[in-house]
Design a protein around this nucleic acid. Sequence first.
DNA 1: TTGTATGCGTTATCAA
DNA 2: TTGATAACGCATACAA
Lengths: 331, 331
Amino acid sequence: MPDITIYEIAEEAGVSASTVSRVINGYPYIKKSTRNKVMKVLESRHFVPNESARDLVNRSTRMIGILIADIRTAHNSDGIFYVEQEFRKHGYSCLICNTGYEMADTVSYIQKLSQRKVEAVVLLGSIYQTHEVEEAIATYIPKTPVAIVSGSLQGDNVYGIMSNEKLGVMECVRFLVEKKRSCIAFGINHSSPLNLIKKEGYLEGMAKYAAASSPLVFETGKGVELMKESIAYFVKEHPEVDAYIFSEDFMGMIALQLFSEMGMAVPDQVSVIGINNSNFSKVSIPPMTTLDTKLYDTCQIAVHCLLDAIEGEHVSKLISIFTEIVERETT
Amino acid sequence: MPDITIYEIAEEAGVSASTVSRVINGYPYIKKSTRNKVMKVLESRHFVPNESARDLVNRSTRMIGILIADIRTAHNSDGIFYVEQEFRKHGYSCLICNTGYEMADTVSYIQKLSQRKVEAVVLLGSIYQTHEVEEAIATYIPKTPVAIVSGSLQGDNVYGIMSNEKLGVMECVRFLVEKKRSCIAFGINHSSPLNLIKKEGYLEGMAKYAAASSPLVFETGKGVELMKESIAYFVKEHPEVDAYIFSEDFMGMIALQLFSEMGMAVPDQVSVIGINNSNFSKVSIPPMTTLDTKLYDTCQIAVHCLLDAIEGEHVSKLISIFTEIVERETT
DNA sequence: TTGTATGCGTTATCAA
DNA sequence: TTGATAACGCATACAA
C-alpha cells in the first residue's frame, strides 16, 4: 500500500521532514505557528507513523512477549489480562503466544520473539521450567529480561515469581485435619513442575498433620471427560476418602458434579478444596473452598521486575509470596 | 543492544551482505559451497534477522490484530485460540488487544494496529458493532481487511461472520414449549448487540410458539455477585416461571447455584438453557442444556475470509451459519 | 553466481 | 528554530 509518509506531510506543510518528525515527537523548540501548520496537515491526512521504521532507528519496539501453553484455560487468560493491563499502562504492547505444550514449539516462539525484538518476555506457567526453554533463552534472548510466573529458571536475565503453593497445600491439609477429616486424597491433572510442588506440599502436610493416615495421590490427564472418568475410578476404589484436594478448581468442579451424581453429600460425606480461586470456585454447587494462589499479585510483581530490568535496575532473581485459603462451603 | 547483523555474518563468511540475505531467503542461484559457508556462520552466531528492518523493506509484517473486550471471559479466549491457531498455520503472528468496553479505547487500539501495519484485524464480539469503530476503521485502516465475528459493520474492507443466534434462541423457546414448559423467561447480562438479537429471537419465539403467555425479559449487569442478586430478585418476583434461557452459560451456572440454594429442582421445577456450549455448561450440576453458537466455525471462516482478502480475492461480505441445541440435563 | 548501490520511513547529528 | 544528511538492518535491481 502506498502509505503516506512524513515527506508528504512535510511537502504539504511546506517544511522539511525533520520538522514534521519533531512535531510528532513533541520536540520543544519549534515555532508555534509552524507546529500548528504541521499539526493541521497531520490530522487532516490521519497520519500514523510507521512503527517498523521507528523501531529500526530507535532500536526499541516497546513490545513484550507473553507465552502461555493454552490461552483457553482460565488461569492463563487471567494471567495474560493482568500482565497486559499493567504493561499497557506503561506504554507497551503485548505479543501473545499460545505455545501449546510442546517445548520445541515454545523454543520456536522464543526465536520469533527474538526476531521481533521484544523488550521483555513473560512465561506464564511452570511448564516452561525446562532445560530446553532455559537454553533457548540463553541462545536467542540472552540479554532480554525474562520473567517466569509460577516457576524458576537459570539465567542472568531471568526472574522467577511464584506464590508458595507448597506451603499453601500443606495448610490445606491442616485445614482439613482441623475439620476432622481423616482420609485426605490429592488429585492432579498432569505432572507440571508446579503440580509436583503442590504434591510435595500435600505429602509434607500429611506427614506433619495426618501422620496416622497414608497419603493418596492420583493423576487424571487433561480434558473434561478424561478427568471425570479418572476421578470416578479413584473414588470407587477409595470409598474411605472423606476429603479431596485438587490441583485446580476446574477438577474440583468435575468432582463436585460427580459427587452429586453419586449422591455423596458435600461437605458432609466428602470435602473438596480446589486451587486458584477462579470463577469456577465461585459458581460451583456448593461454592468451593479454594487456595488463592494470588495470580494478580505475582503478575503485578513480574511486570514490575521486568520494567525495572528494562531500565537496567537491579532486581532480585527469585520472589515468592504467600497463598491464602478462601473458605466457602465445600469443607 | 549491539545486535548482530548480516554485515557481520558477511564479513565472517567472507562474502557480501547480499549473499547472506540471499541464503537466508532461500534464493536458488547460489554456489553450494558458499551457501554452506554462510549457513555455518549463521548457525554458529545464532543469527536472527531483524523483523523491523524486514518489514520496512518488504512492506508487510505478517501480523494480525485481534480485538476482544475482556480476554478473561471464556468465549473470548476460546475465540482468540481458534483465530490465532489458524493464522499461525499460515505464518502469521497475532497481536492481541484487550480493549475493555470503552469504544474510545478501542479506537486508539485500532490506531495502534494501523501503526504496526497489521495485515488484517479480527473483531471478536458484537460489542464492536458501533459507529465509532466503523469510523475508526474507515479513517485508520480503510484498506486493511477486517472481520467481525458475531456482528456486522459497514465498510468495503469489512466482513461479518456470525451464527444465526436469533433463530437459535427461537428454537430454544420451541424446545422448551415441547417440553411442556408454560412460562419461559429470558435473562441477559448486558445489552450488547448480540444479546439484543438473542432477545429478539426469544420474543419472536414466544410469539410463535407460546403465544398464550407473555414474554419476560430481564437484565442483570456484569460480575458474579451482581448477576446472582439480580437473578434472585427476578426469581422471587416471578415464581410462576418454569424455564429460563440465559444469554450465556455462565449466567446459567449462577442460576443453577441459586436454584440449588433455594431448593428448586432442576429440571423438574425449573428448566435452564444456556448459550455457547462452554466448559461451564459441561461441568454444571446438572450438566446444562445449551445453544451451541459454533464459535470454532465462525472463527475458522473469519480467518479464511481474511486470508483470501489479503490475497486480494473477492469474498462475500456477510456470512451466517446455523446454531445447534445441545441437550443435557437441565431441560 | 556474486557484489555494489539504492531505498524502505524514521530519528538524530550537525550546521546554518 | 529549521534543514540536510547520515544512519538503522535488510532486500533487490542492476552490473559484473
